[in-house]
Design a protein around this nucleic acid. Structure first.
Lengths: 177, 177
DNA sequence: ACCTGAACACCGTTCAAGT
DNA sequence: ACCTGAACACCGTTCAAGT
């Protein structure tokens, strides 16, 4: 007999599989294998794969340090997403059905000095931009890995900052003038 | 014997399945069923599912009317994506590995009066924003359909336009002043 | 040339039965 | 309480064999 299975251990294993195999390789069966356990055992601790993905997404984002510097928040979000394979895709998916656990994203509206509704819209805009940019970069990386694509572009960094500056400038417009 | 299978008919059927069942329900087997044919038959006309998805994405976007009005282009892109279930997700996926067929997106840089490199970055920024916004809306709609979520927010329209105006204002900044 | 039949190597999830 | 064994209803893809 080995160590007792826990929700935590399962999330750890899922994160490891994600980092090693990408989202396409993140299956319940492989997570079980990683833990030396039959697939059915997982379902005693997590309801289903979606719930497990929600936990993995929360782990990807980590504990969001609340800041009122939107530019810094965006860069930290990007870094967190880039730290693990397909991070953006996982977070995008979870954002739709269980945003509660994604603290650093939920804190974003506070970075905008705008009326409540507009602060939420501004945060949404920024989130879409960052997730989209990282998702495209990581999708390309996956295809390069598969050999379908030769090589990604080398202007990722410049391109991201160019767009980020533009988005933030646009969002701040009505405040600063 | 029925009508001869063609690539076109397969794309038609795939589009119909997507609209009826969503991306999760779009399987090669269901497309085959829709056409009254065994799954293997599809592979005589298309190399694999990814290739089929690329064709479906091109059909979603239609023939992109080249315009130099970025705001209009963005609204048309959004409308096209919203016309079919999970349209944004399909196009996002295809954008990463086969952007050639997505005419209306490839034409976007022309809508920005900027140096070539920056025009490409600006188009990328706009694309990420629109795809992200529609993807979130459609993901929510799927979850509502499943019963996992009660109801989507009702500020989708306002939220989209708010973000779009901000993004475009930010992107135009350096030109107009 | 075009399609079927049948298989291969997978999935997520459930659930009786064991301990 | 926790896990296994075994099944159910699926996947994408391949490929000999038929027509």
């Amino acid at each position: 007999m080995s160590v007792a299975l826990t929700r935590e251990l399962i999330v750890d294993a899922a994160y490891a599989v994600l980092d090693g195999q990408g989202l396409a390789g993140l299956t319940m069966r492989r997570v079980a294998q990683e833990l030396d356990v039959r697939p059915g055992a997982l379902y005693y601790h997590v309801a289903n794969k979606q719930e497990l993905l929600a936990e993995v997404a929360a782990r990807i984002l980590g504990q969001g340090s609340a800041t009122d510097d939107a530019h810094k928040a965006a860069r930290e979000l990007r870094d967190a997403l880039r730290r693990v394979r397909d991070g953006a895709e996982v977070v995008s998916f979870v954002l739709a059905f269980r945003p509660e656990g994604l603290a650093s994203i939920r804190a974003l509206p506070a970075a905008f000095a705008l009326p409540p509704r507009e602060a939420v819209w501004a945060a949404r805009t920024l989130t879409h931009y960052v997730l989209g940019a990282v998702a495209e970069e990581q999708n390309r990386a996956e295809l390069v890995r598969t050999g379908i694509l030769a090589d990604g572009p080398d202007d990722v960094e410049e391109s991201f900052l160019f767009g980020l500056d533009a988005v933030l400038a646009g969002l701040r417009r009505r405040v600063d003038l």
